[in-house]
Design a protein around this nucleic acid. Sequence first.
DNA 1: GGGATTCATAACTATGAGTTATCAAACGGA
DNA 2: TCCGTTTGATAACTCATAGTTATGAATCCC
Lengths: 297, 297
Amino acid sequence: MSYQTEFRHFRYFLALAEDLHFRKASERLFISQPGLSRQIKQMEEALGVNLFERHNRKVKLTKAGEYMQRELINNFQRLDDIISHAKLLNDGMDGHLKLGYVGSAMQRVIPDLLLKFKEEHPNVLFDINEMDNNKQIKALLKQEIDVGFVRMERVPRGLNILPLFEDTFSLVLPADHKVDASNFKSLSQFKDEPFILFDSSYSQSYYEKVMQIFDDAGFAPIISHNTVNASSIFRLIENKFGVSIVPTSLKLGYDMNIKFIELNEIPQRTTLKLVWNSVNTNPLLENFLDIAEKVDF
Amino acid sequence: MSYQTEFRHFRYFLALAEDLHFRKASERLFISQPGLSRQIKQMEEALGVNLFERHNRKVKLTKAGEYMQRELINNFQRLDDIISHAKLLNDGMDGHLKLGYVGSAMQRVIPDLLLKFKEEHPNVLFDINEMDNNKQIKALLKQEIDVGFVRMERVPRGLNILPLFEDTFSLVLPADHKVDASNFKSLSQFKDEPFILFDSSYSQSYYEKVMQIFDDAGFAPIISHNTVNASSIFRLIENKFGVSIVPTSLKLGYDMNIKFIELNEIPQRTTLKLVWNSVNTNPLLENFLDIAEKVDF
DNA sequence: GGGATTCATAACTATGAGTTATCAAACGGA
DNA sequence: TCCGTTTGATAACTCATAGTTATGAATCCC
């Protein structure tokens, strides 16, 4: 690397290469003419390259000098770009934000939040992956993702949590099921029908909350299938394998032969929460949290 | 441009980014640890970019820092290449050398000289153009070419000259001409035959020298054609338009139905000379002259 | 708990960038 | 041809700041 030579030298060189006049260039650089003379001379000695021809009272670039001028302008432009981009990264205006989410967050919340964020950070790219609550927690602890969207009550030490959106539960039935909103009385009407539920591995606390609903209704459900994603549950219901209880917002976005009955009267609610690692230093994270706190769902 | 920030900062940054250890990096840079600490801090403030995370007693690169490290290594490599190449240009080991030559120099001298030069300067490119003596002189004065190969006695002030190769003259006849080396006595045998000669515009002094040959032989030639290149002259001779007197070395390289009779006895000689502008600063020129002075033809 | 290690801070030193003063050379206009 | 002007280079000085030494605070580890 070009030891001895400093940036200053190159700056001075480029100024002089433009003006071809020591006094004028020195004024433009806000230094004295002898100062410039010496720095240029120093640079020529350090590089072992004659950059200027000084005969009579005329200064002109040598071939090597012309070449350097041309190339240095490019090179410094590139360097500027590097620094600008580094600053964007630093300020969380560029880079990658890695997100994990439970499937049921894709209907509401996530689309709104990402759109809002993209407005202010158009250059940021999202890496978005659906994963269950536990996978997200692990990934957050290893900093494999920056933020997670989960449905769970508490998270391990070191992770922070922000409630985003509280949702009711809904009963989901085949479209042609004999029960509908008008003749629905109580959950106990379904005590003999098989239920398809999210697996307990999806989230222990979510699972327990759903079980509490059945407890309150006074019966233990016949559980015919456990699965981990909403789409599978709905497909099974459509084909008459059973019925289900899911967060109400899942109603949006699926075009299937099923119907929802919102369970307003029961006390249980499920809250979608944002989780992140407190030692994560990705500047984008801070900006993302700022937005998330402001947005109202 | 990144004012404030100097090369030094980037050098230090790259060292620390490698070691991730202030003391070790500082030792490698032959400065003290506090010195490095301050320069890095200064750089971060000047650029407005956090480059390192310092928690506990561990140093690690931020995302922006990683990006900068990656990009700066590239950029500085490129800068090194620029400087190396500028040095080659400066030392006359690379670049373009522009040559002019009279056609009769292409048989001898030029091929030898260029080959010899290329051995020691494999990266140099030649721009070679045939042009008559006067054109070369003008081009040399305007520095449109770096060196010329001419046949003339003197050159304008400001140009330097180096004799390269002294040549005898030869009579050129159709292959089936009745005169040949065995029955040739004197030039006066040709006083009634038409001559094809280089035009006086080719070089006044060369023209006068040829005329002197006829003067010495005691007759004025019948000049049937003037032309400016050897190939034309030979073609005309081949077709019996006349005979000619040319530099002997032109014998080489033409495959035509003509024969040469070398005029050893006459005193006239023609010398191929190298000419260059004394204010030409192309570093290649100096190297070229060094070779030219050494080569023996 | 005490010694060792790490980075940051503070106060000092000294290198060298930048200054002013001046020179020599070469224009250019009378 | 001569004198005033303009140019870049040189010399001697000054002052800003990179780099130094000394020390501190935090953390690690035996």
